[in-house]
Write a protein that binds this DNA or RNA. Structure first.
Length: 849
RNA sequence: GCGAAAGUGGCGGAAUUGGCAGACGCGCCAGACUUAGGAUCUGGUACCGAAAGGUGUGGGGGUUCGAGUCCCCCCUUUCGCACCA
């Protein structure tokens, strides 16, 4: 090692050695316990940003830790390389998406390598290459075979700016998830995947991962699936054989229904209004609602509006006739697109009824023991609108409900659904908010949908042996909204696999979330040409032990990949339900926006970005990574600070200098503890060493990396205090220093691997830190134990003194020495000692009066 | 509006089961070495107070010998959801 710390030199040296020795390449035939550490694969935009650096530094620390602990670690990386930016670049600047993407990947790979992230590059994948997307297509065909992929003409979310279809998740809130543009609705033939078939499992299996996933992610997933238990009820239309089906979670309130309210988009409307003089009005209303919804910019709720259709429906329980309304607050996308309006017991219905003077009827009374009822309970089934100021939405006891009166809501909910089923006008039902996953994209830069349309045979799947359906080299990027592939005759025109007649290919490509739904299974067997992966190998490596990424993927990616895993399980490719055991959603990296005092996520448009390359050049990869991990807990926002990173270099340089001072003495001296006794200082150093080992080892369990770094600094500080002259040091001192310094170097490796390797070598070790042997030190609890305890003494809860006591001191002894303490005696003099609380080995509290 | 999480020095943040609040770092102050210091090293650094001592974990109450930690009310911030029947 050199006397001075030159990060660039050391980092180049070790990056080269690691690559040559292939130390990060995971081997299958390895008997050691496996660990799969995974970070979300990046989109190759061209440049790494600090969010990536944080993500990969966390993952790398864990990967190193597990390797040093002697585990067989799989730590791969790849590229989410299909997607819109490449195509935008093609449209705007005429560059070829493939070349653009490959150039970006090459650049970013270089950046990752300069950061020294310990990836197994031999398993690198890229979604845009035919050897990868072939398997997207393969999975698509499997879905098709099993009826999980289907085509339907549907209203889809359309982003006018990006000229493409978006999934429901991608257009959440009516705006495009990428560009923020107001989303429109369009009618298009689209491929869908039946994720709804798995809705129940997506909720139920959450309990398998509860322990390892952040609750906030699971909550969002539960909300997305939106499971809701209730009942369907059919309301017969008066003087007609048509029925309106409603979904309700509160069938117990059905005697309180005073209207049926349908969505303005409800397909049944046309039928039931046939010949009605109001039809034109209703149509106009429907158009208006659609427009208002599309134009809604602010997030506020619209005022409820509705229109009476003049049609009447019959309440199957009470036989009563109810008016049928349409209203803007009933959504076609949820439930059945129609509700029974129970203003007495539903806030929205209440508001609606108030506005349109519909009757309000109370049919549930609160079950209260001693509490005065807030609302009067009418004894007749009359209109209660005058008395009620709010709806009463709690469960209670049924009143004004015919033969059901007196039953508790909980009971009625079940029995009334059974009754409806027995009489053929409804049944208990579970609905879900989640809808099927629309995967068609009118895009060039994606995996082509492997389907052929033949005028004789109809829709024909591309035979497996003809996969992959390869993208043409280029196309005309007009940005017209039609897939550019439609303008490439060599691609479109083909022959029917069935009858050899001329036929046309599907010109849509798949949503890029398809690529990322299964990519981490491909890492396991990245070069397999005959299958997406070998199930034997996935059995060895998956599920993923720890997945790390931003929480922006809490719903889309992470729900799709859970769905995909369940599908692969049904195909027999994997034998578990959940792909990821533990998930960490790391916080954002923010920086001050110039001219303000606001911390915002780094971005080009705000001009507050920090270039990782510049940081590496100025401070080194090790210091950059160390700072990123030290500056904040991994799940918190990380506020960038240039002076903070300087502190990290300072620390590394100090450690390096200390190793330099000792390295000759340590690499020659005896490795035995020797017969001589340890001095008090040496014992204290050893204590700190073993305490630190214990602390960091357990911190890794919860990825408390910031406190691990702090512990390393503490150990170093104690070493500095110990120090002394290496040439004069006794054998036992040398032993204590070696123990501390070697532990420090090894435990630094997950945070700053290059300098750790360099120092390890400097301390006289050949062959690098990573071998098959378990190198992580073990904490010896005996050595970590304190020799004497400083026990705080409180009087009436206030700290007044301290006494020194040996470990294992008895409660009586502690009490005695506390009461004998001079300062305590002065305070209790002339007062009555009420009691003395002794917390063994920790604290004494003398209570006086 | 609903839901969740969080509020600790000038800043980022530490603090097993309630038991010494402020670890570690940044910044700042003083000193040393220096032609110089935005390098390095040493020491100091919650607040008030000359000191003794007192006060302190968003605010108010409570439980307890003892509360950053537990309970209740309120305030603020961030995030998520937004008519889900």
């Amino acid at each position: 090692m050199d006397e001075k710390y030159f990060p660039e030199q050391i980092e180049n040296k070790w990056q080269q050695q690691w690559a040559e020795a292939g130390v990060f390449e995971a081997k299958e035939n390895d008997p050691r316990e496996k660990f799969y550490a995974l970070e979300m694969l990046p989109y190759p935009s061209g440049f790494l940003h600090m969010g990536h650096v944080r993500n990969y530094s966390i993952g790398d620390a864990l990967a190193w830790f597990k390797r040093l602990q002697g585990l067989n670690v799989l730590h791969p990386i790849g590229w989410d390389s299909f997607g819109q930016p490449a195509e935008q670049a093609a449209i705007k600047r005429g560059v070829n998406p493939r070349e653009w993407t490959e150039t970006n990947i090459a650049h970013m790979r270089g950046q990752l390598q300069r950061l020294g992230i310990s990836y197994d590059w031999s398993r690198e994948i890229a979604a845009h290459r035919p050897d990868y997307y072939k398997w997207d297509q393969w999975f698509f065909l499997k879905m098709l075979e099993r009826g999980l992929a289907y085509k339907k003409n549907s209203q889809v979310n359309w982003c006018p700016k990006e000229e493409t279809v978006l999934s429901n998740e991608q257009s959440s809130g009516g705006i495009c998830w990428r560009c923020g543009t107001q989303v429109e609705k369009r009618d298009l033939e689209q491929w869908f995947l039946r994720i709804t078939n798995y809705a129940e499992q997506l909720v139920a299996d959450i309990r398998q991962i509860e322990a390892g996933w952040p609750e906030k992610v699971l909550k969002r997933q539960r909300d997305w699936v939106g499971r809701s238990e209730g009942a369907f009820i059919d309301f017969q239309i008066k003087d007609s054989d048509k029925k309106i089906r409603v979904f309700t979670t509160r069938i117990d309130t059905i005697y309180g229904a005073t209207a049926i309210v349908m969505s303005a988009e409800h397909p049944l409307l046309d039928e039931i209004l046939e010949g009605s003089t109001l039809k034109a009005d209703i149509d106009a209303f429907a158009t208006k609602v659609a427009q208002e919804r599309a134009a809604r910019v602010d997030e506020a709720e619209e005022e409820k509006e509705g229109l009476n259709t003049g049609v009447l429906a019959i309440n199957p329980f009470s036989g009563e006739t109810l008016p049928v309304w349409v209203a803007n607050y009933v959504l076609m996308e949820y439930g059945t697109g129609a509700v029974m309006s129970v203003p007495g017991h539903d806030e929205r219905d209440f508001e609606f009824a108030q506005k349109y003077s519909l009757p309000i009827r109370q049919v549930i009374a609160p079950v209260s023991h001693d509490q005065i009822q807030a609302e009067p309970v009418p004894t007749t089934a009359g209109d209660a609108s005058a008395e009620m100021r709010h709806s009463f939405t709690d469960y209670g006891v049924l009143i004004n409900s015919g033969e059901w009166g007196g039953k508790l809501s909980e009971v009625a909910v079940k029995e009334m659904a059974d009754y409806a089923k027995a009489h053929g006008f409804g049944e208990a039902a579970v609905t879900y908010r989640i809808r099927d996953w629309g995967v068609s994209r009118q895009r060039f830069w994606g995996a082509p949908v492997p389907v052929i349309y033949c005028s004789n045979c109809g829709t024909v799947p591309v035979p497996y042996e003809q996969l992959p359906v390869v993208l043409p080299p280029t196309a005309a990027f007009t940005g017209t909204g039609e897939s550019p592939l439609a303008g490439v005759p060599e691609f479109v025109n083909t022959t029917c696999p069935n009858c050899d007649a001329p036929a046309r290919r599907d010109t849509d490509t798949m949503d890029t979330f398809v690529d990322s739904s299964w990519y981490f299974f491909r890492y396991v067997d990245a070069r397999n040409e005959n299958a997406p992966f070998n199930p034997e190998l996935t059995r060895q490596w998956t599920p993923v032990d720890q997945y790390i990424g931003g929480d922006s993927h809490a719903v889309m990616h992470l729900i799709y990949t859970r769905f995909w895993t369940k599908f692969m399980r049904d195909l027999g490719l994997v034998d578990f339900d959940e792909p990821v055991k533990r998930l960490l959603t790391q916080g954002m990296v923010t920086n001050l926006v110039e001219g303000t005092d606001e911390w915002k996520a780094m971005s080009k448009s705000l001009g507050n970005g920090v270039d990782p390359d510049e940081m590496i050049a100025a401070f080194g990869a090790d210091a950059t990574r160390l700072f990123v991990l030290f500056a904040a807990p991994v799940e918190n926002e990380l506020r960038w600070s240039e002076s903070g990173i300087e502190g990290a270099v300072r620390f590394l340089r100090r450690v390096y200098t200390m190793v330099w001072r000792w390295h000759e003495r340590l690499s020659n001296g005896s490795r035995e503890a020797g017969a001589s006794e340890f001095s008090a200082d040496a014992r204290a150093l050893r204590r700190k060493t073993h305490q630190t080992i214990a602390k960091i080892t357990s911190d890794f369990e919860h990825l408390h990396l910031n406190t691990s770094v702090a512990a390393l600094m503490e150990l170093f500080n104690q070493l500095s205090d110990f120090n002394g002259d290496p040439a004069q040091a006794s054998e036992s001192d040398v032993f204590a220093v070696r123990e501390a310094l070697e532990a420090l170097v090894i435990m630094l490796a997950p945070f700053a691997p290059h300098i750790a390797e360099e120092m390890w070598q400097g301390l006289g070790h050949a062959g690098g830190l990573l071998t098959d042997a378990r190198r992580w030190p073990d904490a010896d609890p005996e050595l970590a134990r304190r020799e004497e305890l400083e026990i705080p003494i409180q009087v009436n809860g206030k700290l007044r003194s301290r006494v020194i006591a040996p470990p294992g001191v008895s409660e009586d002894e502690l009490r005695e020495s506390a009461l004998a303490d001079e300062r305590v005696r002065a305070l209790i003099d002339g007062r009555e000692v009420v009691k003395v609380i002794v917390v063994p080995e920790r604290l004494v509290n003398v209570v006086i009066r």
